[in-house]
Design a protein around this nucleic acid. Sequence first.
DNA 1: CTGAAAGCGCTTACAG
DNA 2: CTGAAAGCGCTTACAG
Lengths: 349, 349
Amino acid sequence: MKSRADIAEVARHARVSKSTVSRVINGGYASPEVRARVTKVIQKLAYTPWTTARNFSLGRAGCVGFVIEDTQGQWIAQILAGIEAELTSKHISLLVGSLVIREHYDATTVTSWVRERRVDGLVFARCGKFERSLIDSARRAGIATALISPDDDFTGVDILRSDNVGAGRAVGQYLFDLGHRRIAFVGGQARVNATTFRESIDSRHRLDGLSQALAEHGVKIPESSIVFLRYHVDSGVEYARRWLKLARARAPTAVVFGNDAMALGFMRTVQSQGVRIPDEVSVVGFDDIPSASLVWPGLTTVRQEMSKIGETACQLVRRALERKSVGGSVHQFPVSLVVRESTGRVPNE
Amino acid sequence: MKSRADIAEVARHARVSKSTVSRVINGGYASPEVRARVTKVIQKLAYTPWTTARNFSLGRAGCVGFVIEDTQGQWIAQILAGIEAELTSKHISLLVGSLVIREHYDATTVTSWVRERRVDGLVFARCGKFERSLIDSARRAGIATALISPDDDFTGVDILRSDNVGAGRAVGQYLFDLGHRRIAFVGGQARVNATTFRESIDSRHRLDGLSQALAEHGVKIPESSIVFLRYHVDSGVEYARRWLKLARARAPTAVVFGNDAMALGFMRTVQSQGVRIPDEVSVVGFDDIPSASLVWPGLTTVRQEMSKIGETACQLVRRALERKSVGGSVHQFPVSLVVRESTGRVPNE
DNA sequence: CTGAAAGCGCTTACAG
DNA sequence: CTGAAAGCGCTTACAG
């Protein structure tokens, strides 16, 4: 196999120096004639610079890493799409790494990225306290970092999150208008360490918004109707079991979940017991994952601008790289209530 | 910011040459004493080789690329998990790229990977005729390639697919046992070019298996009950509209879909019209995507060993790289029927 | 078992 | 506007 052309071969054919070829490629000074000649040779030889050599020479990795808890979360797909769209034809590649491999928390992939300077930038989806040392070491290594919906306070990095309070308020107002007065909230938990989880900040903010909106109408969510469980389908199933045991006249007529997975777990479980949604209970989720519109009745939920968020995260990272500046900005994104069929007027009693 | 240690600094501190440090790191010859000394210095200086320099020196990219149609398909998550598990701590990173960006077919990302030697290996999920030139150029560039469920004939690359005929047979036997005799098949289509699609090979094989199993019991699927549409939720919705118009006494009592997305689109549409599943119609999907177990009734489907397939694809690529051999093996993976609540005995008429 | 040296393919001050 | 030369941080024949 004839080995591919390198910059020296192009230079030879075009009767110029390698420097000049490099300049032509990277938009530096070059007289029109020379530029034309070099361009033609590049075409003819089908020359493309070898990225690894280029990155090596420039002292960078040419990659941005996207870190997720694990690949199974449906809500990451949109973020990924946004990042990809932003990266297309920018000579930056996208590395993907999970923090949970084969069901075990294992940050070695991402740790290696940082230690081995595999990435120039890093975008975290839903990181928390447990990732603090990882994020700190990334910052010390000069890796531009953006955090999407982090579940802890971080400084010196760009932060992107949705308007969770606003989301909660929108849901509260909507449910109140439908006549609901007994409303429950099932929030999610974030990881604190390899095996422990605690009340997530996002969920807490949504609950705050929900409570505010209801309070303005004199409605209060009793402590007994507030619970925080893992952000997982099983939690919805578990809550459904509790709900099913309640006397219907005292049970919440609407349940607001911290994410769609939990809401869907709840729905299918009560449906399997013959409960009709929304006739007997209204359900609201959060995220608008693909499954939310695949079930019947469709899940009323709050949509986040995930694609936009991913795109922006990536732009911030790139900007931080160019300016060599330490990003520390906070960006909030609007949300929108997506009304489907899982919510309806409060049942008559 | 003090710049990080390089191999020369380690060599200085350990009073050996760079060659020796390199050997210690990469497991070459080194006397125990020297090895110990160097190791200690590496520890003390917290030295880690810079991956880009290493890859540059070795003439490789240090990355494997995973190519998908787009990020939204739920069935890719498992493959990704398998690939990641296989790559962990092997000094190979995972690049992810889609062929559809912002709703438009755009292979520039992957084309760049090949042209710029960004990847050493490539794993395609569901590629087809349209990706042929891309795959050919990858092969010419010496990039080890594995194709997962390709929808066309390819040679010189490793191919992985599920036992689609077996899957179809299992479904056929199962539905026959439940008493179904009027069965419909809604297959999927694969991309032929940027805007055209045609009957997918996978779906065709599943139909073959289904037909075989039924034929053994003297049951035949009439041509009018076979249709191929896009692998998409909307196709399920469309088919549901057709099905709803049929006289119930002549309508298929069971519908087998080419993937879960279509099946779920069908389910929610007929459910929205008050049709009870499986009392009035049984539904079978293919893939076992997350949503399949989130809906009620849960979707009976055929599970593929996606995680295993992803893992194997990656192993094959790595092996091809080491041996510099041209892979050309074909691997078939078993499937399993996952019975949930969307299928039941044929309705009495 | 170890070291000096060359080389991987680019980019970029620097001098002209 | 252009070229000669140095350098990015590793690895690896080669010689000892």
